[in-house]
Design a protein around this nucleic acid. Structure first.
Lengths: 357, 357
DNA sequence: TTGAAAGCGCTAACAG
DNA sequence: CTGTTAGCGCTTTCAA
């Protein structure tokens, strides 16, 4: 932890906006600015006593380095641009927590952006990141409902030498082209299905996804289809529901899970969906797991506290953040290996939302 | 929404890191860099046809403005530093959502920091913000358990001309010194007590806070003490519990709410506390509201979905963010009025967690 | 309406 | 070990 104190940030002599520069320090000590620069940056070749004097004088004058100037020369801004795909999802709090812990110690700062699943907004922020000269970019890329994305732009940015780390999501068309940290979404779903079928005796399964169908969700979809086939569970086309942001419509769609011939268990592929599902259940006065068994994604604390504690596929979200940040820092330190794809494992937390049939 | 396309970000001639500058544009057009600058910034005094040609050429060459260079001259970085006091609290997701919506349209970017209630970490980030030349700072200041804070530093920063907007919390010692956006915490608690006593017949009340005792919590504490007095409710010293981050200890402390002579209703003053309380209830097999009535702060969706939907003091969090950002943008635009203190109202959402006595 | 020149604050050769 | 010099990319006078 850096303990730091602006002893003399206060304005002296009423000269409100007089900014102290290394020249001021140099002048005060009758030396050259470059020596001051060397001393302040702990570069070799400054006599210890002089260095000490310089640092003291800097402190005394309330000197603050200007990163604008510094970056202009060094081409490093010590900032990492991070794009969140949906600011309403608590997933990103944990993610940011993990990222920040790593970056803070390396003195990297976070330039935060949110795409809210809008490809154009994402593009705008990517441009802004470039303008601000971020040293690296972390992104969970979104896509339009038509499948459009910013892959081309990201390729160009990468070619420019800006390291990119994808987290949570990657590009199907370019699996190994970028560094990435994801979880094994396919396997997570398959394990859940195994549990539902083998352990709990379910035969009719449903799946609930949300627009847009990004990589992560496609993988879960694939896991669902193949998992059902492998473990011999039935699924119908209309048991796979894709929600939007429209809560009214969502409830309408979710009703079918609770209807006569619906599935006996359903997998809710994110936090928002789980809430929509529980809301619908409450409204229809249906009981979990008696009327429907549920497995949720994302283990938020409340999943444990609901009337029926929810069985959950727990993603190591903080770890995703940490790994992504460590990966980024490695690239920034000049690690030159081919793109790495870290795939973390999720864990099935068994609670009480799945009924034994 | 800015629709933007790097037609020519791609690398030409294998010259990977050749950065296009206004000089390149100028050279290509046989004009002076200053003219290019004027054109690109839509400054007056460039013939329309020339301006058009310049912009086209810029696009063609894949020009990206350098904010490091630009800021060095203009002293504006178009970034706002934002410090969150606790990244685990979903409050900040809504807050950031509100902020970002406003800042995005004004092309301000967010430099994100988290203090996690650590005064020294907060100080470090404030220093970093200064080094990076943020145009403004938004902060919900934390304090040590000994009451220490960064008020002095913030005063110095403000004197330097960097606008500061406090959100959610302010300084008791300096109420009107900074712009701020908060909610009426005092009144929120009083209203809750009125509801508990007058409407629901409770006479013995408890309160649950969390370290550190920042402004917000002090106000809630004050509201609790005075509200109890005003409406004639009893409260004992050990019915006012202050939690820490230590979940084990917390549960121990919370138990007393459920014991024989404890209060009949308790107000949980944030999201985390509510969860701890529900967890404890579940563990002790106590029922809400039969064994204890609860009013929670922060209306997260799950409050509605619990077995007993939780009666909640709903803070207009997104609005706090929006207002804080609007305030900031106003200052940045040069609004010169005395510091403004916006106090928003919270709302009591009545559900089923309070028993009628 | 455009050009020339200076300089924001810093670092990095190159000298000494 | 320290000084000199040049220049990062941009804007902003001042001049033409």
């Amino acid at each position: 932890m850096i303990i730091w104190f602006y002893k003399n940030l206060k304005i002296r002599g009423g000269n409100i906006n007089k900014k102290i520069t290394i020249r001021d320090i140099a002048r005060a000590l009758n030396i050259n600015p470059s020596t001051v620069s060397r001393a302040l940056n702990d570069k070799p070749g400054v006599k210890p006593e002089l260095k000490k004097k310089i640092k003291e004088k800097a402190e005394e004058l309330g000197y603050i380095v200007s990163f604008q100037a510094k970056s202009l020369r060094t081409k490093k801004t010590m900032t990492i641009g991070i794009i969140l795909s949906d600011i309403k999802n608590p997933f990103f709090l944990d993610f940011l927590d993990g990222v920040e812990r790593v970056l803070f110690h390396r003195k990297y700062k976070i330039l935060l952006a949110t795409s809210n699943e809008d490809v154009n907004k994402e593009k705008t922020y990517l441009k802004w990141f470039l303008e601000h000269g971020v040293d690296g970019i972390m992104i969970s890329p979104t896509c339009g409902n038509d499948g459009s994305n910013n892959l081309m732009l990201l390729r160009q940015i990468k070619k420019r030498g800006v390291p990119i780390v994808l987290y949570d999501r990657k590009f199907q068309e370019a699996e190994t082209e970028f560094d990435s940290v994801t979880i094994n979404n396919y396997q997570a779903i398959v394990s859940a299905i195994k549990y539902l079928v083998k352990d709990m005796g379910h035969k009719k399964l449903g799946l609930c996804l949300i627009e847009p169908m990004v990589y992560t969700l496609k993988e879960r979809y694939r896991g669902f289809i193949e998992g059902c086939k492998f473990f011999g569970a039935k699924h119908k086309e209309n048991w796979i529901v894709i929600l939007s942001k429209d809560e009214e419509k969502n409830m309408e769609k979710l009703k079918q899970f609770f209807e006569e011939s619906g599935p006996t268990a359903v997998i809710a592929s994110n936090h928002f969906i789980t809430q929509q599902l529980l809301k619908t259940a409450k409204k229809l006065n249906k009981k979990i797991p008696d009327d429907l068994s549920i497995i949720a994604f994302d283990d938020n604390i409340e999943n444990e506290l609901y009337e029926t504690p929810i069985t959950t596929i727990k993603q190591p979200v903080v770890l995703i953040g940490k790994n992504a940040a460590i990966m980024m820092v490695g690239r920034l330190d000049g690690e030159d290996v081919i793109p790495q794809n870290i795939v973390l494992n999720s864990e099935l937390i068994i609670r009480e939302s799945v009924k034994k049939l």
